[in-house]
Structures are given as structure tokens and as C-alpha cells.
Simulated scan of single mutants.
Amino acid sequence: MNSIRKHIILGFITTLLTFLFLESRSEWHPMHAWNRAVANVSLLYLMVIIIFGPLTRLFPNLSIILSWRRVLGIWSGITAIAHIIIIFDGWIEWDLLRLFYIFTPFGGEWVLHPGFALANIIGIIGLIYYLLLMITSNNKSMKILGRKSWEFVQKRTNTLYLLVIIHTFYFLFLHNTKNNNWLQIPFIILVLAIVILQLISFAFTVYKEKKSS
């Protein structure tokens, strides 16, 4: 299947998933509901990309799914950018300092919040990683950078995943926890499942290498 068809399919799936996530938080303020909906789609795609690695090592016959990694990465990046735009336009109103300060109703002032600030800094670094991966996710970039340099950049997906997980964990469990967010339990299950799958894949790889030596 060519890349254009893959993008059309992912575009349709992205639209569908976004509206499903949006509908699941219909009681939220629209800006926050849209913000979290596109963020959730981005996270889901990134998790799928991470799963592909250990899954294909355990089941080589599934290696055909690896051809979807590039398209999934691009759409994960697109939805991450949408997440940032919604925050910048609808929440902080392009005042970058508000990424590090929270408003206290009792004091009536903006106060620096270390945890909130750090989570947003991690999110910004994650966005830079996304942009770097998206810009270089093509054959032309491979020719310009050279195969080894290109592979080095593209293999930073695990670093991006870690940054996104930390960022998501903070906003799911530590920030404004009064809002009911059904994603908490699925998030924990998926993160643990990925860790377990990676450990099994690692053990399987070690076993195969020892058996062949």
C-alpha cells in the first residue's frame, strides 16, 4: 500500500478517534475536551509505534506492520501540534509565561508552579522531538543526512515516548485531579503492557542469540 493511501486511512481513523475521545468528555469545557482529545490520539499512535518493535521481534511474520510506522509517526506529530495550538490559542492566549504559572483564585494572582512548569517544559522538548522526527521522516532526508545519521535521529522515538509518558502522567494524576478523567486506568494498563512486552522481547532476543552461538 502506498503512502498516500496510508495517510488517507490514518486521516479518517484520526478524525474518528478524535471525536470519540471528544464525546467521552462532553461535560468538559470544549477547549479542554478538544485539547485532550487530540493529545490522546497522539499518545495512542506513539504507543502503537513503540509496540511494533518488540511485537515484530517476537512474531517476525508481523513485520509487514513496520511499514506503517512512518505514517503513524507523522500523524502522531500532527495531533501533537494540534494539541499545542489549542493550548496556545485557547488557554494561554500566546502568553508563554502562562505555561509555567498557575492562577490562584484566592490570591488573585499568577504563581510559579514548579511541577506544572516542568511538565510543560518536558512537553515542549517532546514537541521539538516530534518536529525533528517529522521533518526527517522521508527518503530525501536520509540522503541528505546519510543513513547512519538518519537512523540515529529516527531511533530517538523511545526518548520521545518517555518524555510524552512523563508529561501525560503529570496531567492525568497530579494536576487538577478534580476533573474526572477515565483515561487514568487505561493509561496505566497500556504503559505496563508495553514494559512487559519489551521485557519479554528482550528475554526472547537473548535466548535466540545464546541458542545460535
Rank of each mutant, 00 (worst) to 15 (best):
179 N>W: 11
150 W>A: 02
164 V>L: 10
201 S>D: 11
192 L>R: 00
56 T>P: 06
89 D>M: 11
45 Y>Q: 01
81 I>Q: 04
193 A>Q: 11
144 I>P: 05
170 Y>R: 06
75 W>G: 01
1 M>R: 02
20 L>A: 14
3 S>L: 09
175 H>P: 03
96 L>A: 08
18 T>P: 08
107 G>F: 10
173 F>N: 14
181 N>C: 04
166 I>T: 11
201 S>Y: 06
6 K>V: 02
43 L>D: 13
16 L>P: 01
197 L>H: 08
187 F>H: 05
184 Q>P: 02
153 V>A: 07
159 T>N: 12
121 I>P: 02
21 F>C: 07
8 I>S: 13
173 F>E: 10
106 F>N: 13
111 V>N: 07
25 R>G: 14
56 T>N: 11
34 W>H: 11
142 M>G: 14
76 S>T: 02
67 S>T: 05
52 F>K: 00
36 R>M: 04
63 S>H: 03
34 W>Y: 15
89 D>E: 15
177 T>L: 05
64 I>A: 12
18 T>N: 10
90 G>Q: 14
187 F>M: 00
30 P>E: 04
91 W>T: 09
177 T>I: 12
77 G>I: 00
137 S>W: 08
18 T>L: 14
158 N>I: 10
95 D>E: 14
185 I>R: 00
92 I>L: 12
101 Y>F: 06
35 N>T: 03
68 W>E: 05
190 L>W: 10
26 S>C: 08
212 S>Y: 09
97 L>D: 14
31 M>D: 14
128 I>Q: 13
67 S>G: 10
196 I>T: 09
1 M>S: 10
38 V>L: 01
44 L>E: 05
209 E>Y: 06
168 T>F: 13
37 A>D: 03
113 H>W: 13
11 G>S: 14
116 F>I: 05
2 N>V: 03
7 H>G: 07
179 N>F: 13
7 H>V: 06
139 N>M: 11
164 V>E: 11
164 V>N: 04
117 A>R: 00
213 S>K: 06
160 L>P: 08
142 M>R: 12
140 K>M: 10
167 H>L: 04
73 G>Y: 01
211 K>V: 04
10 L>P: 11
200 I>N: 09
11 G>D: 11
96 L>F: 11
10 L>D: 13
97 L>T: 07
